[in-house]
Design a protein around this nucleic acid. Structure first.
Lengths: 245, 245
DNA sequence: GTCAATACTTTGTTCTGACATTTTTACGTA
DNA sequence: TACGTAAAAATGTCAGAACAAAGTATTGAC
């Protein structure tokens, strides 16, 4: 009855088995091989067919459930959720977003200096007099201005150069230096742009900007970044997936 | 070294052991018994002390990690996260938010009628000619207008009355009728208000609104609600917690 | 005294096995 | 025929064990 998805497991790979399985099942749903509403092969049969233990298969399925791709009901079985678009809000920068979408993003660094800022320091759990690297960038896609990005980085990153930021996304630079943001706290709102922002984003006088401020931390709780971004509201929206457990 | 949190497990309770444990540990963090940065008792010791198996303890800890309360690092141990505010973005309405915050929210139903709308029907996976209950409400807090809420409900809820909505939040009404939204897809953006919205929200001509459109579904994938809300941007912001796994 | 290799601690992954709970289906009896 | 009970099917919970991987600390050699 249930469709048997073709899965190949590489036991010599360093990638955990449950994750290999989750990725391939997720791919089968994304590619349309599994249609919304379809019954999903039950976990015991799947485990037997792939020579995996039940906990491993369960964990893979659980991963998809928490992404909203599958729905489980005890006694009934597992079915494919009927919403195709279930992209989870991720800790990626707009740069990555655009690159994936096929645009040609470019960045202009408007300013790049060391400053002290009490409010930002507080948001990053740093002493009020910490010297922060303040970066203001203009992000364009196909020569169309999209966003003004203001960021503050903790003292450990004070030596990041202007050139780095022009060629790579800021998150890519941080990743290369071993900073891995794991938790972030975002606040989304809207306001009218300042005169400078309006000029940079080429906005008409009645057009608002969408704002997002974010504090990001790594796994050990060390601050990675504080950001205050404003986007052209008519070109950009923020998608959030919510799931209650 | 690590603080031993007092935990009592009731094995005769229908509540799963891992959940009992997670709740009590979460409480210990919320109450301040465990301070941010504190080392957390390692999972093997905790399992032994409470006479639970390691998988059970692991699952409880995993629950707290995914809530952002704990941070784990292999080889190092588990520590209490140093951000206290880790409220996950939840599927609650603004009404509930305000009630918790101690405000006095009131609702005025501006319109309440049956309509057909192709776009909304598509967003809810319903046939294009489905008859939807369209509700437009004005939300106030302490007599200050906050938001214009436009909602569409599937045919099953066509009999919800005006009075219900005036007294309870819409989500509370839906809950009472057994509708339990589990997954939602939100899009957040900003724009200038329409003339009617500006009048209702008493906005000056240069003030933008923050908009949120949302499709919500229950555990079986049935549509529960489509919402198109606009908020006074200067009074409201949306908080989102992100965590990468 | 410094540096590298080793041992230890802690979390991560995987397996086998068992029983509980929920829902549907089928069967048997009144 | 109708209803209730029992079996089957599926997910949920829990235990115990073993090994892997990562990070720290210790120890040993030079």
């Amino acid at each position: 009855m249930a469709i048997q998805v073709g899965v190949t497991i590489d036991r010599s790979s360093p990638v955990p088995l449950y994750h290999q399985l989750a990725e391939q099942l997720s791919g089968a749903i994304a590619s349309g091989q599994l249609q919304p509403g379809d019954p999903f092969e039950n976990e015991i049969a799947l485990a037997e067919r792939l020579n995996l233990s039940r906990p491993t298969v369960r964990r893979a399925i659980q991963e998809l459930v928490s992404q909203g791709l599958l729905l489980r009901q005890r006694g009934l079985g597992t079915t494919v959720a009927n919403r195709k678009v279930h992209r989870r809000a991720e800790l990626t920068s707009l740069y990555d977003d655009l690159k994936r979408a096929g645009g040609r993003p470019t960045t202009t660094v408007l300013s790049h200096e060391l400053v002290r800022d009490e409010q930002v320091a507080a948001a990053l759990d740093l002493p009020a007099d910490a010297e922060l690297l303040s970066i203001v960038r203009l992000r364009l896609s196909d020569d169309q201005p999209l966003a003004v990005l203001r960021n503050w980085l903790p003292p450990a990153y004070n030596d990041i150069t202007r050139e780095c930021l022009e060629t790579e996304g800021m998150y890519a630079v941080l990743r290369d230096r071993g900073a891995r943001p794991v938790v972030a706290h975002q606040t989304i709102s809207a306001r009218m742009p300042t005169a400078a922002e309006r000029r940079h984003l080429r906005l008409k006088s009645s057009e608002p900007v969408l704002t997002m401020t974010r504090s990001a931390f790594d796994a050990t709780g060390n601050p990675v970044e504080y950001g205050d971004h404003c986007y052209r509201a008519q070109d950009y929206s923020i998608e959030v997936m919510l799931d209650k457990r």
